[in-house]
Simulated assay, not measured.
Amino acid sequence: MVHSEGGVVGKELTAKGRATRGRIVEGAALVLREKGIEQTTLDEVMARTRTSKSQLFHYFPGGKEDLLLAVARFEAEQVLEDQQPHLGCLDSWEAWQQWRDVMIRRYEEQGDRCPLGSLSLHLGRSTPGARAIVVELLHRWQEYLAVGIRALQAAGHLPREVDVEERAAALLAAIQGGVTILQSTGQAYHLRVALDHAIGDLHRLADQRPVAITAR
């Protein structure tokens, strides 16, 4: 068997084994959301997931730290999954508005609790793979936004000269800034304003497109 960032992944891991590991990770994620990292014990995770100690250490030989790393990866995936299918279909202004509404609703429901942020803070940059999880999440998130902006260009809604990567990076920064303030205050106002201005800036670029002059 080989070791991964979030525990053991057997070379010949069966479908049942993958399901068991996934069940442990999802169960642990629920416990962590309810009780927090410091108050969560492996005994609680085993009880919640109906897992024996030998099973848990088979998949996560490093114990709690290995399990937390796996949960961090799960929570990172959830960040993107919770935005679907809208994040993957940003090909019209209506689609962008729907995605914006989903984003606001998701983070309003989450409030000042951020499972991934708490896990990243607990694991720290020194834990192998911990920082990579967040970096990968942000990279994928920005790429989704970039694909959406290119879709607007392809549909004729944005000028071709728009710097796609720059705009996608600005959008992601607006989201992260708004979410950070939300986690500090419990209020989604700044996130709402940041998203509205970022998307509004794209709209204004659309309005600045040169008007084609047809010959008479």
Rank of each mutant, 00 (worst) to 15 (best):
residue 35 K to C: 04
residue 168 A to C: 00
residue 123 L to F: 09
residue 103 M to V: 13
residue 123 L to V: 10
residue 15 A to F: 07
residue 161 E to L: 10
residue 136 E to I: 04
residue 152 L to V: 14
residue 92 S to G: 09
residue 203 H to Q: 15
residue 166 E to T: 13
residue 203 H to V: 15
residue 74 F to W: 09
residue 115 P to S: 12
residue 203 H to C: 14
residue 75 E to V: 07
residue 191 L to K: 04
residue 89 C to N: 12
residue 73 R to T: 06
residue 78 Q to E: 15
residue 26 E to I: 12
residue 9 V to Q: 07
residue 118 S to K: 12
residue 119 L to V: 13
residue 99 W to F: 14
residue 205 L to F: 14
residue 131 R to E: 08
residue 69 L to S: 06
residue 147 V to R: 01
residue 70 A to D: 03
residue 201 D to W: 08
residue 165 E to T: 15
residue 210 P to V: 13
residue 76 A to Y: 15
residue 114 C to P: 02
residue 176 Q to D: 06
residue 190 H to T: 15
residue 88 G to Q: 03
residue 15 A to Q: 12
residue 92 S to L: 00
residue 22 G to W: 01
residue 6 G to V: 00
residue 45 V to L: 05
residue 155 A to P: 11
residue 160 R to Y: 04
residue 41 T to M: 05
residue 128 P to E: 08
residue 88 G to M: 08
residue 210 P to G: 14
residue 84 Q to D: 05
residue 25 V to I: 11
residue 149 I to D: 05
residue 198 A to M: 00
residue 2 V to I: 10
residue 3 H to R: 11
residue 61 P to Q: 09
residue 143 E to P: 00
residue 7 G to I: 04
residue 216 R to L: 11
residue 124 G to V: 13
residue 52 S to V: 01
residue 102 V to L: 12
residue 86 H to W: 05
residue 44 E to S: 03
residue 195 L to F: 02
residue 187 Q to C: 08
residue 118 S to V: 14
residue 146 A to C: 13
residue 61 P to G: 11
residue 207 D to I: 15
residue 103 M to S: 12
residue 51 T to F: 01
residue 67 L to C: 04
residue 132 A to H: 11
residue 116 L to Q: 08
residue 191 L to C: 07
residue 164 V to K: 01
residue 216 R to W: 14
residue 80 L to H: 00
residue 101 D to V: 14
residue 66 D to F: 10
residue 184 S to H: 07
residue 40 T to D: 02
residue 49 T to W: 02
residue 107 Y to T: 11
residue 38 E to R: 10
residue 16 K to N: 10
residue 96 W to I: 06
residue 2 V to A: 07
residue 196 D to N: 13
residue 36 G to E: 00
residue 127 T to N: 10
residue 159 P to C: 07
residue 146 A to V: 02
residue 136 E to L: 15
residue 33 R to S: 03
residue 23 R to Q: 05
residue 89 C to K: 08
residue 128 P to T: 11
residue 114 C to K: 07
residue 215 A to K: 08
residue 27 G to F: 04
residue 115 P to K: 15
residue 173 A to F: 06
residue 146 A to D: 01
residue 115 P to D: 09
residue 156 G to W: 06
residue 114 C to I: 07
residue 87 L to D: 02
residue 49 T to S: 00
residue 33 R to G: 03
residue 61 P to V: 07
residue 209 R to D: 13
residue 149 I to L: 07
residue 62 G to V: 11
residue 215 A to E: 14
residue 13 L to D: 05
residue 127 T to V: 13
residue 62 G to M: 11
residue 173 A to V: 08
residue 27 G to V: 02
residue 196 D to Y: 04
residue 27 G to D: 02
residue 170 A to M: 09
residue 108 E to T: 15
residue 37 I to L: 03
residue 108 E to H: 13
residue 39 Q to K: 10
residue 48 R to C: 06
residue 33 R to F: 00
residue 188 A to V: 14
residue 27 G to W: 06
residue 113 R to K: 14
residue 128 P to R: 10
residue 17 G to C: 10
residue 196 D to M: 08
residue 52 S to C: 03
